[in-house]
Amino acid sequence: MATVTGTMMPPPMTRVTRMRRYLRSKWFAYACITPIVVATAVLIYYPLIVGIYYSFTNASGTNPNNVGIPFLNIPSTFKFVGLKNFFDIFANTDPTVDVRLIFLQTLEWIFFNAVLHFSIGLGLALLLNRKIRFRGVYRALLIVPWATPQFVAAFGWRFLFNGDYGFINLLLERLHLAPIDWTGQPSAAMAAVIICNVWLGIPFMTITLLGGLQSIPNELYEVAELDGANGWQRFQNVTLPLLRPTAVLVTMLDVIWTFNVFAIIFLITGGGPYHRSDTFVSYAFQVAIINQKYGLGAAYGVIILLILVVFVMIYSRLLRANEQVY
């Protein structure tokens, strides 16, 4: 007991002991950070550089620009081609695909998903933030899509979208509406993949926004009520500004995750018809792995990186603007 009280009162520190402690803690900090720095350098940044290198080559899995197979003693025959891949992409020279459309579809994909996730999520969060019966039940049901693995969701929706025996078209038929050509019509195909991803993303938005709402102190509402603010004014002047940090954060995460989505597009429409539901991510896979054009595929990877850099810049602006709220 005596030792405990003894240590509770720190001995007067000299400059030397403080310095030693400082150095010791700094050593510890570097030790903590080393594994992750090494891991990201070797497994993210090094491959990134390799990817950029490949984007300047015409490497492919087929002749005449073969990457070579060391295992079979087949030498590589691919060449450095400078900016040719990027030129081909930006000049839109490939007769089989319209790159401009893929770019637009990527934006469309992110925009609709982000907007629908956020608006539906916020709506549900506001409803669930009230004192209502069965709140727990609703919340539990709401979690279901979140707990569903992405690929299972994709298979499930592909099943529902089937032209002949899919539930959605059967239902439309029952209602004497024209069935929708989910895989043949570009807009319907895009809608199909967006619907699936919106379905998957609603719970995350709802639950995090609900958390954001719940962390707004009740006193603020009470004060606003005393000031005579009505429901809408309270929403506008208390809820929205205080929810904004949460909203900006979850929207950013949502955009990143949405941008990354591959399985849904690949498994539901395969990017079709004629690449009209492809995004850069799903199309890059098609180019790099199915068509085995590693150089061109890597160039798409670099373009994806550029898009992300632009996004990070916009986002950091937003963050800065956000901080001014406080």
Partner: peptide
């Protein structure tokens, strides 16, 4: 380090697809 994480956090798999495949 923080900045590098902010950036890598956004790297989609598609970006590393070709280089990881090759490596």
């Amino acid at each position: 380090v923080l900045l590098s994480f902010l950036i890598t956090q956004m790297f989609p798999g598609a970006l590393l697809l070709v280089p990881l495949y090759r490596l």
